[in-house]
């Protein structure tokens, strides 16, 4: 979709909701220099949300949207969970259908878009909770990787079922006491990043969302690699402050603690050699484009 398609006829302008007017005026579609720094200046990058105040998912969601390389031709697939409270606010077409089937939906969707638009890039990005990705939907998550489906899977890992009130999930830490784990979880946190790489993902990253630059980089990498090579997986620690008993302003500290040396969210990346070479090339291109954009801006002044 080009920005041309969202234009409003002049006569209709006053009747359109402010969100739509803002999208026409200020959406970052088509701007290849868009970044997390645009958050706050465009309603499209989630002005409001209905998550708990201070929930790290809300900022993670914004970083992801701002990092998509091709938002005007990206379709997102969600699942049931706290994220499904945010998707209705998102100015990118997105599908919610059932709990856990997100990678099955994305498989059909990506293939349909490929058949319908063979000469156009249409990115598909899945975003779902850890319960959806690792427990109820694990079969479909992994099978899509085995099949080499060309889309990105992002998991908001808050280490529990938040939306239903904090029950045990496969990504919960061993020993953590929660609902449905009354004597503490008895088995280890599932090693999904490693499983993902083994299962055919060409690029895998696991990190917290404490640093927007880093989140932006891995999301961009994951989407570009999915386009060229095959499935990619990004797992983001977005602690459920409500269920682990933290205050609204404590999410960032929680993430920083969890990514400290020796902790379970030390940032990690896995990729094939081909992907490494591709991303290196991509970095060089990005740098050149940034430089050119800066030079053009300076010349315009």
């Amino acid at each position: 979709m080009s920005k041309e398609k969202i234009k409003i006829s002049e006569a209709m302008w006053d009747f359109m909701p402010p969100e739509y007017q803002d999208m026409v005026d200020r959406a970052t579609y088509g701007n290849n220099q868009r970044s997390w720094k645009d958050i706050g200046s465009s309603k499209e990058l989630i002005e409001q949300h209905s998550l708990c105040a201070g929930c790290p998912e809300s900022i993670a969601f914004r970083y992801i949207l701002a990092s998509l390389p091709n938002p005007e031709d990206t379709v997102m697939v969600g699942s049931t969970g706290c994220t499904s409270l945010v998707f209705p606010h998102v100015a990118i077409q997105n599908i919610h259908s059932l709990f856990g089937n997100q990678n099955a939906i994305a498989s059909g969707l990506k293939r349909a878009l490929k058949v319908r638009f063979p000469d156009k890039i249409k990115d598909v990005v899945v975003l779902a909770g850890d319960g959806a990705t690792v427990d109820i939907g694990l079969d479909m998550t992994m099978q899509s990787w085995f099949r080499g489906e060309m889309f990105t899977t992002i998991c908001f890992d808050n280490e529990l079922y938040a939306n239903t009130g904090g029950q045990e999930s496969g990504l919960m830490q061993k020993g953590f006491v929660s609902k449905m784990a009354p004597v503490g979880k008895l088995f280890e946190k599932v090693r999904l990043p490693e499983i993902a790489f083994e299962s055919g993902c060409h690029y895998v990253a696991c990190l917290t969302v404490s640093k927007p630059n880093r989140v932006e980089k891995v999301i961009r990498n994951a989407v570009l690699v999915a386009r060229e090579f095959g499935p990619t997986y990004v797992q983001l620690y977005t602690p459920c402050i409500l269920e682990i008993g933290k205050q609204s302003m404590e999410g960032l500290d929680e993430m920083k603690d969890a990514e400290a040396i020796g902790q379970r969210f030390v940032a990690k990346e896995y990729m094939t050699d081909n992907v490494k070479a591709f991303l290196k090339e991509q970095d060089a291109k990005d740098k050149a484009a940034k430089k050119a954009a800066k030079a053009a801006a300076a010349a315009a002044k």
Partner: peptide, 10 residues
């Protein structure tokens, strides 16, 4: 689900 995805995609 895969059928739904394909149909959602037109």
């Amino acid at each position: 689900g895969q059928c739904a995805g394909a149909s959602f995609g037109g």
